[in-house]
C-alpha cells in the first residue's frame, strides 16, 4: 500500500531523512518510532504529499506522490503533529470545509461528517469555535478531519498527544477498529500504545532506519520495546 524507497530530505545542509526505505501492506498498522528530531514528521509529511522530498520514491496506493500528488492526497487522511485547525471557525464549519476539499458533497458529506463526529466523540462541541476548545478536543477534531471520507491510508502524527487516559483508550480502540480495512502509519512516543495497536514497527534515528520488524520479533527474548528502543537510539 505504501512503498518508500531511498527517501531523502535535506533542509539546505541539514539532512532530516537520509535515504530510508520501507513498505507498509494493506491492513497493517505501522508504528513509526524514533527520538525527537529523528525525521518522523518529515517522513510522514512527505508520505501525504504535503512536503516534497529531495530524492527517492514514494508510492501510496499505487500512485507516485511526486507525479500524482492529487491522487495520493485523495486517498490519505493526515493528522499532523499540531492539528491544522482554523481557530475562527466552529467545529462543524471546519469539518464541512475539510470534507468539501476532500471532494465530498451533499448527502455523502453529511453522512461522512456524522460518522467522523460520532467516532471521535465531538458531538457536544460542534457549535463551538475551535480557538476555544481544549487540547483534547482540538486533537480529536483534527483526527475527525483525517477520517472524513474514509481514506484508504491514515497517517497519524502522535494522535493521542494531549488526551486524557480515557480519551487515549477511546482513540486507540478507534484506530484499532479502523485498521481492519485500511492502512495506518502512526507515530508516537508512548511505547505501550505501539504494543497495543501496531503490528509492525519501524524505528528511525538521525534520519536512518535502525529497526524494521514485527512487534513480536522486537520484543522477543523477554526484552521490552522500551529496552530495544533505548539500545537502538542511544549511539
Amino acid at each position: 500500500m505504501i512503498e518508500v524507497r531511498e527517501l531523502e530530505k535535506r533542509y539546505h545542509k541539514l539532512v532530516a531523512v537520509a535515504g530510508i526505505s520501507f513498505k507498509v501492506d494493506r491492513g497493517e498498522v505501522l508504528g513509526f518510532l524514533g527520538p525527537n528530531g529523528a525525521g518522523k514528521t518529515t517522513t510522514m509529511r512527505i508520505l501525504t504529499g504535503a512536503l516534497p522530498a529531495t530524492s527517492g520514491r514514494v508510492e501510496v496506493a499505487g500512485f507516485n506522490v511526486f507525479d500524482r500528488p492529487l491522487e495520493v492526497k485523495r486517498r490519505v487522511g493526515y493528522l499532523p503533529e499540531t492539528p491544522p485547525l482554523y481557530n475562527d471557525l466552529d467545529t462543524l464549519g471546519y469539518l464541512r470545509f475539510a470534507g468539501r476539499i476532500k471532494g465530498l458533497r451533499g448527502r455523502r458529506l453529511r453522512a461522512a461528517l456524522q460518522r467522523s463526529i460520532d467516532a471521535c466523540g465531538i458531538g457536544e462541541v460542534t457549535g463551538r469555535l475551535l480557538g476555544n476548545l481544549s487540547k483534547g478536543f482540538r486533537q480529536r477534531v483534527g483526527l475527525a478531519q483525517a477520517l472524513l471520507g474514509e481514506p484508504e491510508v491514515l497517517v497519524l502524527d502522535e494522535p493521542t498527544i494531549g488526551l486524557d487516559p480515557n480519551q487515549i483508550q477511546e482513540i486507540r480502540r478507534l484506530i484499532h477498529e479502523l485498521a481492519a480495512d485500511r492502512t495506518v502509519v502512526l507515530s508516537t512516543h508512548i511505547l505501550p500504545e505501539v504494543v497495543q495497536i501496531c503490528s509492525r514497527v519501524v524505528i528511525i534515528h538521525r534520519g536512518r532506519i535502525v529497526a524494521d520488524d514485527s512487534l513480536q520479533n522486537l520484543t522477543s527474548d523477554s526484552r521490552s520495546l522500551e529496552q530495544t528502543f533505548h539500545d537502538l537510539t542511544q549511539q
Binding site: 504535503a50 512536503l51 492529487l70 492526497k73 493526515y78 499532523p80 491544522p84 476539499i101
Partner: peptide, 13 residues
C-alpha cells in the same frame, strides 16, 4: 497557525 497543512495534504491546487 499551521492550518495551511490541511490545504497541503488535501487535493487542492
Amino acid at each position: 497557525s499551521g492550518s495551511y497543512e490541511l490545504l497541503m495534504s488535501n487535493p487542492v491546487t
